[in-house]
Each structure stands twice: as structure tokens, then as C-alpha cells.
């Protein structure tokens, strides 16, 4: 029997919205409008994607999968780009990075028969990989910018001692990668102990045997771990050089970074 939540039951979800709404009203947080709007928007988005997925799942996989993956990658690129717009070629680097990550992961899945080339398997799993990679790239860009600002003295010192930008940035690159990878290492360490991962929970609720659900969860968790590492590494290694000009001089502010793009 397929699990079913009736529409009437869904209506009672409004109680979950009323809790933060009441808190906002009581403590005058001024967030009531945001709470109502985000709840409505989230509901509409989810139903819309539900219908779109139903449509895509019925399509020929060779059409539906590339179409949806392209849309996801482009949206993810724009989102991550917002975190480092002032950096030259950031858009292209992120786009290329996401394509490389997704193609690599998908190739491995298919080559080792972990996932079937059907929209219902590839699209949701790729969505998780692309989404996590997007977050990792955005975080890496933000972290890199703040590390460059905070460590400008050290970078100047390194350059003045004869270091090339790649050598001077070593510390920044290490810190950025650490920051991007640590949350994932922690998540993997506690997986199944602190919280049951979303995908596994979904599969179990959908009637799949727990051991099979765990296998899928392992595939996705380790794929995400790998793709997040690759994304952070790719964006960091591709972008650090834009904090310097061609004369191995540190660019000190956003204006100088922007001027370099021209």
C-alpha cells in the first residue's frame, strides 16, 4: 500500500505555521509577513515541482534528464555566483565546476550500476548533489574573500619574502577547504545517530525496506561528500589567483577586483 496523506490532513499543517507566527506576534519580531509568505511560497513551489517532476518522469530519459539537470545547474550557478560576483570569471568557474561534478558523479553511478538512468532516480539524486555543491562553492567563495581580507598582512609579508601568489595563498586555500569540508565530515560522522537522513526517511516512508534505503542513502551521502570536496577544491583553486594582479601584487579591495575584470 502506498502511503498517503489526505488533503484534509495537510490542512492541519497550518498549526506548524501558527507556532512561529504566534511567537513573532508575541515577541514583536516583525517576521509575521515573512513567515506567512515563505510558508505559502514553499507550498506552491513544492506542488509546482511535484507536477513538473511528474511530467519529467514521463519523458524519455534522454530528454528529461539533460533538460532538468541543465535547469538545476544554471539556477545553482546563479545562486552560488551571488556569493562572489565581484570576482572575475566567477560565473564561468562555478558553471564549469558544477558540470564537472555532476557529470563525474553521474558517470560513476551509471558505470557501477548504483543508479538507473531514469528521471525518477537521476533527477532527485542529482538535485541533492548539485544543491550541496552549490552551497559548498558559495561557502568557499565567501570564506576565501574573508580570509583574504583578514590575512592581507600575512599575504603581503609572504609576497615581500618572494612568494608567488600560489605560495602566498597556501594558508588561505587550506583554511577555505577546511571550512568547506569540516561540516560534511561532521555530518558523515553522525549520520544515522543524530538524525536519519532525509532520503532514507523518505524511502522508508515510501515503503522501501530499511536496508535498501540505507544503500541508497550511502550512495547519496558519499556522492555528496565527494562532490562537495571537489566543488570546494575546484572553486578555490580556480579563484584564488584573481586576488592578485599579473605583477604578483595583492588586490586590496572590491574595486580593484572589479577593475581586473575589465
Amino acid at each position: 500500500m502506498e502511503p498517503e496523506i489526505s488533503n484534509q490532513s495537510l490542512l492541519f499543517l497550518i498549526i506548524f505555521v501558527l507556532v512561529p507566527l504566534t511567537l513573532s506576534y508575541y515577541y514583536q519580531l516583525g517576521m509575521s509577513k515573512d513567515i506567512v509568505w515563505s510558508s505559502i511560497r514553499g507550498t506552491v513551489q513544492l506542488f509546482a515541482i511535484g507536477y513538473i517532476l511528474t511530467f519529467l518522469f514521463d519523458l524519455n530519459p534522454f530528454m528529461g534528464i539533460p533538460l532538468m539537470l541543465s535547469i538545476m545547474i544554471i539556477i545553482a550557478t546563479f545562486h552560488a555566483w551571488n556569493k562572489g560576483k565581484e570576482l572575475p570569471h566567477a560565473f564561468l568557474v562555478i558553471l564549469l565546476g558544477l558540470i564537472i561534478v555532476e557529470v563525474s558523479v553521474l558517470t560513476l553511478w551509471l558505470a557501477f550500476d548504483m543508479v538507473e538512468f531514469t528521471p525518477s532516480e537521476v533527477i532527485p539524486m542529482s538535485g541533492m548533489v548539485i544543491g550541496n555543491s552549490m552551497v559548498a562553492m558559495g561557502l568557499a567563495l565567501e570564506r576565501m574573500k574573508s580570509e583574504f581580507t583578514e590575512n592581507s598582512g600575512r599575504l603581503m609579508a609572504a609576497l615581500s619574502l618572494g612568494a608567488k601568489p600560489s605560495q602566498a595563498s597556501h594558508l588561505i586555500v587550506t583554511k577555505t577547504l577546511n571550512a568547506a569540508l569540516i561540516p560534511n565530515v561532521d555530518r558523515l560522522k553522525t549520520i544515522g545517530l543524530v538524525q536519519l537522513p532525509g532520503m532514507m526517511t523518505g524511502l522508508i516512508l515510501g515503503g522501501v525496506a530499511p536496508v535498501m534505503a540505507i544503500k541508497y542513502q550511502l550512495v547519496i551521502s558519499l556522492s555528496i561528500f565527494s562532490s562537495v570536496s571537489l566543488s570546494a577544491m575546484f572553486v578555490t583553486m580556480a579563484m584564488y589567483r584573481y586576488f592578485f594582479n599579473k605583477n604578483d601584487q595583492l588586490l586590496e579591495n572590491e574595486e580593484e577586483l572589479r577593475n581586473q575584470q575589465k
Binding site: 603581503m156 609579508a157 619574502l161
Partner: peptide, 28 residues
């Protein structure tokens, strides 16, 4: 550029040492 900077050394207002030991910094 790197050779010029080795010959024209700079000491900044703050020490800006690299994380690690005194030796790590001296040999940088």
C-alpha cells in the same frame, strides 16, 4: 619580481607571522 623582493626586504608594522613555529617562519 620574487628575486627583487628577496633583495629588497620588508618589515611591516605587525609581525604577520605564519602559523607554526619560529623555525617555520625563519626558513619561509
Amino acid at each position: 619580481i620574487s628575486q627583487l623582493r628577496r633583495k629588497v626586504g620588508l618589515l611591516l608594522q605587525s609581525p604577520n607571522l605564519f602559523p607554526g613555529t619560529v623555525l617555520d617562519n625563519l626558513k619561509y
